[in-house]
């Protein structure tokens, strides 16, 4: 059936929609809050962050969405993702269908081994966190560094500043290094 409207509709071009996904405990919600602040606090961009609540948020796939625009954001949830970060295989399998054709896919290749045959970025965020920073908990911050480098939505300095505002006392150095590491690795890989 031919659609009079739907066939003519272009998804809004002024929105950039990101989903950070993984399993409960990987700090995806924390990362989305930091990313939202880093992008929006000192700019005129509109930012909406949302997350899954309830049983879904406790174990299993966890996700947080960040929508960014230079204009008013009408619909607050992601419609078709411009960027998907998948920190687990389950999250990738679940959310990959929501990614736009030619959307940016970033996976944690420490834990994700079965990636669709599309252009994507693969970083061993979890291994890097454990082996190079010395704490597995900062894998999400390394991923944020990578997102900053790959999208250009936020500078490394601004991201570091916001990460440090939220980092527990005593973990500043590890978090600073994590941003640096993710940022540099992603720059090297940037296509």
């Amino acid at each position: 059936m031919a659609h009079k409207i739907l066939d003519k509709i272009q998804l809004p071009s002024d929105r950039f929609e990101m989903r950070l996904s993984g399993s409960g405990g990987q700090g995806m919600i924390f990362a989305s809050v930091v990313l939202s602040k880093a992008i929006g606090m000192n700019s005129n961009k509109s930012v909406v962050q949302s997350q899954s609540y309830g049983p879904e948020a406790r174990g299993g796939a966890s996700k947080a969405d960040v929508v960014v625009s230079d204009n008013e954001i009408y619909y607050p949830k992601a419609m078709k993702l411009d960027l998907l970060l998948a920190m687990t295989q389950e999250a990738l399998d679940k959310y990959y269908p929501d990614l736009k054709e030619n959307g940016m896919l970033i996976v944690d290749s420490s834990l994700v081994h079965n990636v669709p045959d599309v252009e994507h970025y693969a970083f061993e965020f979890t291994h890097m966190a454990r082996n190079q920073i010395g704490h597995i908990m900062v894998a999400n911050v390394i991923a944020l560094g990578a997102i900053a480098a790959l999208t250009g939505l936020v500078t490394k300095e601004k991201l570091t500043e916001i990460v440090l505002q939220h980092a527990p006392r005593g973990t500043e150095e590890k978090n600073r290094n994590a941003v640096e590491l993710g940022y540099n690795e992603a720059l090297k890989a940037k296509k």
């Binding site: 809050v33 939202s36 602040k37 929006g40 606090m41 961009k45 509109s46 930012v47 909406v48 962050q49 949302s50 997350q51 609540y53 954001i73 607050p76 949830k77």
Partner: peptide, 10 residues
Amino acid sequence: DEVIAHSREI
């Protein structure tokens, strides 16, 4: 409603 209550915006 729940969507507005739990969404974060700048």
